[in-house]
Design a protein around this nucleic acid. Structure first.
Lengths: 202, 202
DNA sequence: CAAATGTATTGAACAGTGTTCAATAAAACA
DNA sequence: TGTTTTATTGAACACTGTTCAATACATTTG
């Protein structure tokens, strides 16, 4: 039965086509400003057809959300070659910030968009947990190497994520203009360096 | 000429009435989900009249944005009685986080809503700078007391804000569920405590 | 081949959004 | 009184996410 197989493939291709259109429009205009009609227009289909392939706008969100985390993880895994866990931790933060700078819209989607983010066992939520686990393992490795003694690894992980995320969040929501005479790049990189200075004393 | 005076007062009252309605609906449904018709309905007026008293939805946003910072600053100034600058700095962070917990919607408005935030000399943007200055002065006082030697105060200020904001941002956008078996309150307070541990070594 | 079935796509419709504006009501001034 | 300002309305416009009857197409069946 090669036909139903091809049918399935074609359906998958259509899903991908919609997703490609959605990604493109979304990377141009931001998630909130992207309408179903924009997406449909981008791929020269009617808006209605999207609802044959996706439940709603939320499902497209979930898919792109997952993509973003997949991209981030890929970027982080490059650092697996760095052997020393603390060096890898510090580099991960820098890579994280760089990711936010270069993929502002993905970052918004992943961490800053208002959306239920249905925790449906699987779904994009799972890959987010994977990214957290990456950081958590790194923290544990640092502790095994003698760093961060007497600190709870869970809260430490959350704190490191928060500090790094905070830098990116202020940037992504344009709340950095209170710090004048400094470019965003300077602010983010030196701000993070400042955090690293503290980490090194821990 | 008492009439034009009264007229002005009445106009101001109407502005306030709209703002009150906007605040109420917004605190219930969140900023994005609040429509001009919702606001108008709340105060039993037609939607059109809002545009006689405000330029657009953005101006209402600005006004509530300003309110939020005013509320935050009032809460921070309670800590002026704490003499030791480092103790005050630590307490400020706790107060900041508490503010986010108790005023999630204001917090979203102030730091997480997508909105141009026109930097029009005056406007709510000015009071945001005031809040940053509060933190910056605190950092400088800590340095004069011998803390954070050889660290750039600008970047340090930005970093401390980022770390604290990061905690609140993850909470306000419901991105804390990757850390299971911990309540939001636990996570935020112990996460911050973890940051303070680092600060104490700086 | 033709008819019937199932699948994919359309375009109109619905209720909602922010915003504008002619008409109108109300108040202040002459 | 009539005239001019000021405040308010409600309809309209172009948009939004979403649903759904109608339709075109592809495949299977008679």
């Amino acid at each position: 039965m090669g036909i139903t197989e091809r049918k399935q493939r074609e359906k998958q291709e259509m899903r991908q086509r919609i997703l490609n259109g959605a990604r493109k429009v979304f990377l141009q205009n931001g998630y909130e400003q992207t309408s179903m009609r924009n997406i449909a227009n981008e791929i020269s289909y009617s808006a209605g057809v999207i609802y044959f392939h996706f439940k709603d706008k939320g499902e497209i969100f979930q898919e792109l959300h997952k993509e973003g985390f997949s991209l981030l993880l890929r970027q982080l895994r490059v650092l697996d070659s760095v052997i020393d866990p603390f060096e890898r931790l510090k580099a991960s933060g820098r890579a994280f910030i760089q990711f936010a700078q270069e993929n502002k819209d993905y970052y918004n989607l992943m961490f800053l968009v208002e959306e239920p983010l249905k925790n449906t066992e699987e779904s994009g939520f799972q890959i987010a947990k994977e990214a957290i686990k990456y950081l958590h393992d790194l923290v544990l490795a640092c502790q095994q190497a003698g760093r961060f003694k007497d600190m709870d690894p869970e809260y430490l992980t959350f704190m490191i994520l928060s500090a790094t995320h905070g830098i990116c969040a202020l940037f992504c929501k344009d709340r950095t203009m209170s710090f004048e005479h400094k470019t965003n790049k300077e602010l983010m990189e030196n701000g993070y360096a400042s955090f690293v200075t503290l980490l090194e004393k821990g």
